[in-house]
């Protein structure tokens, strides 16, 4: 596009800025929060909800776009995780999705 600057291509400059921006998002939340002596209970409640709120959103497309094999695997994995460890659920889910797809679901 524009050629080189300081001997680095445009692509490399974009990568460097992308890295800086990404690192900024990874430290900024902590830097902002650590400026406050006390955390308001509502902020605390919001922060405690971050894992469940974000992880749910990450899983949603798998259910929305999935066929029967995916939906059955999700339902069984949810039930299994009430009793089994995370690792066991993970490998059981893996076997299940392969088996269900193999039988054409």
């Amino acid at each position: 596009m524009m050629g080189d600057f300081l001997g680095l291509s445009d692509n490399v400059w974009i990568i460097i800025f992308a890295a800086i921006i990404t690192y900024f998002t990874r430290v900024s939340g902590h830097l902002i929060l650590s400026r406050f002596e006390t955390i308001h209970p509502r902020v605390e409640a919001g922060l405690n909800a971050v894992p469940a709120a974000v992880v749910t959103a990450i899983v949603v497309p798998a259910v929305l776009t999935g066929g029967w094999a995916e939906i059955i695997t999700v339902i069984i994995a949810v039930i299994a995780s009430l009793r089994l460890s995370m690792m066991k659920v993970f490998f059981m889910g893996w076997v299940l999705i392969i088996a269900l797809r193999a039988i054409g679901l």
């Binding site: 894992p51 469940a52 992880v55 749910t56 990450i58 899983v59 798998a62 999935g66 995916e70 695997t73 999700v74 994995a77 949810v78 995780s81 009430l82 995370m86 659920v89 993970f90 889910g93 893996w94 999705i97 392969i98 797809r101």
Partner: peptide
């Protein structure tokens, strides 16, 4: 089924919360 594994992983993690 590898592309679906990340979803299973996150699902199992979600349930631990």
């Amino acid at each position: 089924g590898i592309t679906f594994l990340l979803s299973i992983y996150f699902l199992a993690l979600l349930m631990s919360f």
